[in-house]
């Protein structure tokens, strides 16, 4: 693994997206949506404002998930299809560098978009309530960490699966990832013995615990979120994404291009 290679490939991936016009359309629509949501309720305080905040964060979460999926679904298949990967991988670039580069470019792009949306949200709430909501920044950060996990999953799934299959599987992982702790809690309550406990534990390890990254209710209710929690969630997300990428490397290194 060479960080410099990963950086170069990441930069190229980022550049690829920013030179596509469709990307700006997408972006402007998202900005406009948030702008609209807030100006409509600009002078409302209380429950209505909470509702708007909830809606905005939900929309942001979905938007991030769709972005991760949309950006990474065909990133590698397309490179293999039109053979742009051939020239790249005939250089001293390992397949892991390539995978990580694609990952880096995608999550950097999401970072830029999410930062703009998060800052917009912070500024608008500041204008409205005259106080800074730091938890919004934490919520934004964790949404980005969630996108790391999702992007890694979609990129890795794109190696064995076709894009439609990948979209289905990844959406499934996203949905189950958000439900998993509730579900697993229920499961582990049912199977208290060791024999039943191991599969439950494995399931818990295999599926990403995505609601770890969900700070919506804390932001809406106005609870502070301890930094320790955020740090833990970031660490979990990073490790999970890394594991998935390592699995991807295993698949990619066996592939005949």
């Amino acid at each position: 693994m060479r960080p410099a290679n990963i950086w170069q490939i990441g930069r190229l991936t980022l550049c690829e997206w920013t030179r596509k016009k469709v990307f700006y359309m997408f972006f402007i629509v998202a900005l406009a949506f948030f702008g609209l949501a807030f100006t409509l309720n600009f002078f409302n305080l209380g429950p209505q404002a909470r509702f708007t905040m909830d809606l905005s964060l939900t929309a942001m979460g979905l938007f991030t998930a769709i972005l991760s999926l949309g950006l990474s679904l065909s990133a590698i298949p397309q490179d293999l299809e039109n053979k742009t990967a051939w020239c790249l991988l005939s250089r001293p670039v390992s397949r892991f560098d390539y995978l990580c580069g694609k990952f880096l470019g995608t999550v950097l792009l999401i970072l830029i978009i999410l930062s703009i949306l998060t800052v917009e949200l912070v500024v608008v709430t500041f204008l409205k309530e005259n106080r800074l909501h730091w938890t919004i920044l934490q919520a934004g950060l964790l949404l980005w960490v969630e996108s790391l996990v999702l992007t890694a999953v979609v990129l890795t799934f794109s190696l064995p699966f076709s894009p439609p299959m990948n979209a289905a599987f990844s959406s499934f992982v996203y949905a189950v990832g958000h439900l998993s702790s509730t579900y697993i809690q229920a499961l582990s309550q049912e199977s208290r013995n060791v024999a039943g406990g191991i599969p439950v534990l494995l399931l818990k390890l295999a599926l990403p615990q995505l609601q770890y990254f969900d700070l919506k209710s804390a932001v809406v209710q106005g609870y502070p979120v301890p930094l320790g929690y955020t740090g833990e969630a970031v660490l979990y997300g990073l490790l999970y994404a890394l594991m998935v990428l390592l699995l991807g490397e295993l698949l990619l290194s066996r592939k005949d291009l």
Binding site: L12, C15, E16, R19, K20, N82, K83, T84, W86, C87, S90
Partner: peptide, 11 residues
């Protein structure tokens, strides 16, 4: 290496 077929990043 020059591949037999390949496209280069068009953008």
């Amino acid at each position: 290496y020059l591949p037999e077929v390949s496209t280069y990043y068009p953008y």
